[in-house]
């Protein structure tokens, strides 16, 4: 579906050197990235600002030409075959609009049907599906400029999908959205991904997007891939664990241990304790606790991916 081989993108920047002199310096925004993404995969592409996420996406969509290396999407080479590729991919730039600012959403969709030369019946069917999944009907006749950011993003997603693309590129699709809109966008993308027809690559700063949507996570920093695998693999590699937070009627007896877990925190005079689950399953740990102490309440906390990624960026 998508193949990148030693993909490289260098930019020349002018750096101030002294009062008037400027020096040219070459900076690698993408520095030898090799990735293969299979049909139906949902890949989260993350990294700190300036890591090369957007540059990669621009090379995949034919906006930017690589300095060296190879890239192919759906068997096409993006830059020379840009217009052919454009008919088969969908792109959502979170901070740029595909829509006609002064026209109602409905009109933008109608225009895009002509731009992408979609047969009317197909167009109708796809639009109907998006309308119901994204609840568009309430604002379909509102000019885009009057839409809230969340409404607009739902419109952008529809706009990117109306021509039935095989690959969907999403550049920060949830940026600036409120919690409810983020949820709407995520469940829509999850549903879309579940069909297995659409390959998705999404960049984001919101790791909840990734946790919800992506089985595969690619972390890029300084233009290089520093992690490529599942979220679980990331946790494993960086030693992050699930934990069990327990509220107790009475503090635990001295010297209490839970096999396969480590006590990592004691709060509220011993009335709340936290265990990190090393090898024990959540079930076993709960059973062990209930038999030894009077448990009022407990919860299992998933490892915080933000922490992991923050540590990853710091170490890279």
């Amino acid at each position: 579906m998508i193949r990148m081989q030693d993909l490289q993108k260098d930019f020349t920047v002018r750096v101030k050197a002294g009062r008037l002199r400027r020096e040219k310096r070459t900076v690698a925004a993408v520095d030898g990235v090799s990735l293969t993404i299979e049909r139906g995969e949902m890949v989260g592409y993350i990294g700190p600002n300036g890591a090369g996420k957007s540059t990669t996406l621009k090379m995949l969509t034919g906006v930017l030409a690589p300095t060296s290396g190879e890239v192919s999407v759906l068997g096409l080479t993006p830059v020379p075959q840009r217009t052919r590729l454009a008919l088969r991919i969908g792109v959502v730039f979170g901070q740029r609009s595909q829509l006609w600012w002064d026209l109602p959403l409905r009109e933008s969709f109608r225009l895009l049907r002509h731009v992408y030369r979609v047969p009317a019946a197909e167009h109708e069917a796809r639009l109907r599906r998006c309308r119901s999944l994204l609840d568009l009907d309430a604002f379909l006749d509102t000019p885009v400029r009057q839409l809230s950011l969340g409404q607009r993003m739902r419109g952008e997603l529809t706009a990117a999908l109306l021509h039935g693309p095989g690959v969907l590129f999403l550049d920060e699709p949830t940026i600036g959205l409120d919690v409810v809109s983020k949820q709407a966008v995520r469940s829509f993308l999850a549903e879309l991904g579940a069909t297995g027809d659409v390959t998705m690559v999404l960049t984001t700063h919101d790791l909840a997007d990734i946790e919800r949507l992506c089985h595969r996570l690619v972390v890029i920093d300084h233009g290089r891939v520093v992690h490529d695998g599942t979220i679980e693999a990331l946790h494993e590699r960086y030693g992050s664990r699930r934990s069990l937070v327990v509220d107790l009627d009475r503090p635990l007896p001295d010297g209490f241990t839970l096999p396969g877990a480590t006590l990592t925190g004691v709060e509220a005079d011993g009335h709340r304790v936290t265990f990190a689950l090393d090898t024990a399953s959540a079930g076993a740990a709960v059973a062990g606790l209930v038999s030894a102490a009077s448990v009022r309440d407990l919860s299992v906390v998933e490892p915080d991916i933000e922490d992991v990624v923050a540590r990853l960026y710091a170490s890279a």
Binding site: V63, R96, V115
Partner: peptide
């Protein structure tokens, strides 16, 4: 400057 050119480049037209 505003990146509109990018949106133009991702459409299947010249």
């Amino acid at each position: 400057r505003t990146g509109t050119l990018d949106t133009v480049l991702i459409r299947p037209l010249r």
